[in-house]
Design a binder for these strands. Structure first.
Length: 287
DNA sequence: GGGGGTTCCTGTACGC
DNA sequence: TGCGTACAGGAACCCC
């Protein structure tokens, strides 16, 4: 499941191959991969061919490759199972290949960026860039909060928002308009590390507890990033198709019924928001 | 505008 | 062996 660390690994992998590259051709095999591009496949292709990528940027789980000549960018959201793969231009089709973008790089020569996506929750689009403080972001990303690894993330504002929310803290952590980049896996891991029950009302958390939680969110994300992200199956891989190793470091997520690494109590798995929460009922006490 | 539930999708695992 | 069903979850969307 691509969350911030996985998307950042993909962005960093794409950057050296795509930045400066000329887009020589675009093939759309499945228009469901363009749900974020309302004008359709022909328009999408027309806005890319003949242009060059100038950079590779990310906010939360969105990544985008700005284009030359005007203020637009190719944006990508990987959804649950989206992959951006670097391949030779004549490489055989991937199992769930939706879009292939052919590139000519000044040093590396011809290559292809393949967007493959099993569950089709991901999407590409060409979007206009608009100013947002010192940087510019696609219009579809403007409403997304900065992520906690962003130097401009506003800790004070985050604390203030939590004070006004009576929702469960886990729900607030998953709200990309409050803090971006955190998904189900890293929400569970951060709450476990901060010893906070996922159903705790956000507004009931003390200031020290919020600070502890934010520090753990940053720590978990940074560690996962250093280990190449979390892979359970073939659903998340880097641009070369390789898995990450953070799944070996998980303390709560996916460990229902197994002993808590901290206290030895059994990790509980519960339904929450049409998904699962994993926590230790002994060291994450409900208030 | 907060709160919380629903929907989209497909491959895999599992029970009968 | 084969079928039906539950499950995985990001983000937009809906109604209260």
């Amino acid at each position: 499941m691509p969350e911030l660390p996985e998307v950042e690994v993909v962005r960093a992998g794409l950057a050296p191959a795509t930045t400066g590259s000329l887009i020589t051709g675009v093939s759309v095999f499945d228009e469901r991969a363009l749900t974020r591009h309302a004008a359709g496949a022909a328009d999408f292709v027309g806005r890319l061919e003949g242009r060059r990528f100038t950079d590779a940027a990310r906010r939360g789980k969105f990544l985008w490759l700005p284009l030359d000549a005007d203020d637009s960018a190719l944006i990508a959201h990987l959804g649950m199972s989206g992959q951006m793969l670097l391949r030779r231009p004549d490489a055989a089709a991937e199992r769930h290949e939706r879009i292939r973008i052919h590139l000519e790089h000044p040093q590396h020569g011809e290559l292809a960026v393949v967007f493959a996506d099993q569950r089709t929750f991901g999407s590409l689009a060409v979007d206009r860039l608009v100013s947002d403080g010192p940087s510019s972001v696609p219009t579809q990303v403007v409403h997304i909060a900065r992520d906690p690894l962003d130097p401009l993330f506003d800790d004070a504002r985050f604390r203030q928002t939590l004070r006004s929310r009576r929702s469960a803290i886990k729900r607030v952590l998953l709200d990309q308009q409050v803090i971006s980049g955190v998904g189900n896996i890293y929400a569970d891991e951060s709450l476990w590390a901060a010893r906070i029950h996922p159903e705790t009302s956000a507004s009931s958390l003390s200031t020290p507890a919020v600070s502890r939680l934010l520090a753990e969110v940053r720590s978990v994300l940074a560690k996962a990033l250093a280990e190449g992200g979390t892979s359970f199956d073939a659903q998340y891989v880097n641009v070369n198709g390789q898995a990450g190793y953070f799944a070996l470091s998980l303390n709560a997520y996916g460990r229902g019924g197994q002993p808590c690494p901290r206290c030895g109590g059994l990790i509980r798995r519960e339904a929450f928001m049409n998904r699962s929460s994993h926590y230790c009922p002994r060291c994450q006490r409900r208030r």
